[in-house]
Design a protein around this nucleic acid. Structure first.
Lengths: 225, 225
DNA sequence: TTACATTTGTGATCAATATCACGGAAAATC
DNA sequence: GATTTTCCGTGATATTGATCACAAATGTAA
C-alpha cells in the first residue's frame, strides 16, 4: 500500500516521532499528488485547508510584492510547505510552485492539529522548523540588502552547490529572470555577473549548466562582495 | 504578590489559555526584570536558556549583517521576544534591545516546554505567533526591497502611528540612524525625505516629534513609492 | 521543418541613492 | 554651565545597478 506512511521513504523528522496509531491516522488522512514542473501547489490569495508536505522534488516560495512577484526562497524535499500561511490564516499569504517534477502530500488540517496536540515531540519538531525558517528569513534579508550583486550571486551559487545539489556541478533550476527575483536584481545584471564569473574562470557555464571551478574565490566574493 | 501571573495585567494570549495550576507553575518559574532604555535583553552570539516576554515597553530586534547591524523590526509589548532564536539554537541568532524603559519576564525554558507539551491551546497560540512573524518577515522584506525610500519611510511613519502608538502624533522612538537601518538606507537619505515631507505639509516635524498632517497622501506614497 | 515564443547576452544611457564633507544643534557628562 | 559626544541637515559628487534596445539563441508546438 503506497499510501501507508509507515512505509514511506520520505518521512519528515516530525513524522518519525509519531506512534504507530498516530501514523496510521496520518495514513488515512492524507493524499499524495504528483506535480509537473511549473505547477502551482499553493496559490497566494486562495483558501487553504490542508497542510502540504513536499516529499520529493524542488519548489520555490514566492510572494506578491508591491511591484512584482518576488521569490522568497527555493526549497527541496523533504519539507513542509506553507506551514505559516496555512496556520495563521485561512487565506494563503504566499505561493508555492514546483520547479521540477515533484510529489506533495496533502494532510487534513484537523488531523495535523490533532497530532500536534497529542504528541509533544511531533509538535516540537514543527515548532523548531518554524523557528529555523524565521531565523533564516532574517539572515537572508540582511544579507541580500547589504551585499551587492556579485556577493549575492556568489551566495546563490554556493547555496545551490552545497545545500540543494551537494555537488559543484549542477544545472540551474531556474531562469535568469527567476534568479534575479530571488536576489532582488535585474535579469540583465545576473547575465552580466555570471558572464564575468565565467570569464574569470570562477565557474564554467553553458546555458543553465554550471560548474564551480574556484570555490575559494567564490566564497571570498560571497563574504566581501 | 506582584509575581503571581494570575494577577498580571499584561498576560499574553497564550498565557490566558493556561489552567490555574499551569499558571501557578509559571508564577514559580519566572523572573521579572526592569530594563532602562538602551539596555540589551538578548545578545546575538550569547547563550540563552530562558524565554523572554516583553510585558511592558518597546524593543527593537537587530541582527549582524555582513557589513553593519541591521534593525529587523520594532516591537511593542505584550510579546514574546526571541522565541525563534531561543528554540532552534542554544546561541542567540539576533539581538533584542529595549528602546524605552521596559519590563521583561524571563521564563524557565523547561517550564515553557512543559506548558507547550501539556496545553494544546497554549502551544497553538505560540505556533500561530511564530507563523505570523514569519509571514510578516516575508512581506516586509519584499516591500523594503521593491519600494524606494519615500515609500519605505511613509510605511514606517504609518506603522508607528497605526500600530505602535495608535495616534498620528508621536515621538520617534529611534534616531535617524536607526530609522535608516530599519529601512536599508542611509541616515542622510532619511533626513532628506523627512525634510521633504515636512516642506510638503505631509507631516509636521520638530526633532523627533512627528505629526502626520496628510495621511491620505502618505498612504498614497506608501503604495506607489 | 517551420514558425513562434521564450530566454539570454551585451552595449549605452540614466536614475536613485550612497558617500563625503562640513557646520550646527541637541543631549549627555562632568 | 562648560565640555564632550552624539545626532542632525544639506550641498556636491560618485557609483551601482536599473532600464532600454536589440540581436542571438534556445526551446516548443504545429
Amino acid at each position: 500500500m503506497e499510501n501507508r506512511c509507515a512505509l514511506c521513504r520520505y518521512k519528515s523528522d516530525a513524522t518519525k516521532k509519531l506512534t504507530e496509531e498516530e501514523e496510521e491516522l496520518l495514513s488515512c488522512n492524507h493524499l499524495m499528488v504528483s506535480f509537473k514542473k511549473g505547477e502551482s501547489v499553493i496559490k497566494q490569495g486562495h483558501l487553504s485547508s490542508n497542510i502540504a508536505y513536499l516529499r520529493k522534488g524542488l519548489a520555490k516560495l514566492h510572494i506578491k510584492g508591491p511591484y512584482y512577484e518576488q521569490t522568497i526562497k527555493i526549497v527541496k524535499a523533504p519539507r513542509y510547505l506553507g506551514l505559516p500561511t496555512t496556520f495563521s490564516d485561512k487565506i494563503n499569504q504566499y505561493s508555492v510552485t514546483v520547479i521540477e517534477d515533484s510529489e506533495v502530500c496533502f494532510i487534513d488540517m484537523a488531523t495535523f492539529q490533532e497530532l500536534l496536540g497529542n504528541n509533544k515531540k511531533f509538535a516540537n519538531e514543527i515548532i523548531v522548523d518554524l523557528c529555523r525558517y524565521e531565523l533564516d528569513s532574517y539572515r537572508k534579508c540582511a544579507n541580500r540588502t547589504q551585499k551587492q550583486m556579485k556577493g549575492n550571486i556568489a551566495d546563490v551559487l554556493l547555496d545551490f552547490a552545497d545545500n540543494l545539489y551537494g555537488s559543484d556541478t549542477f544545472r540551474l533550476p531556474v531562469s535568469r529572470d527567476e534568479l534575479a527575483s530571488l536576489i532582488d536584481t535585474s535579469r540583465e545584471s545576473v547575465s552580466r555577473v555570471l558572464a564575468e564569473f565565467n570569464n574569470d574562470g570562477i565557474i564554467r557555464m553553458n546555458g543553465r549548466d554550471i560548474e564551480i571551478l574556484n570555490k575559494k574565490l567564490l566564497k571570498l566574493i560571497s563574504e566581501n562582495g
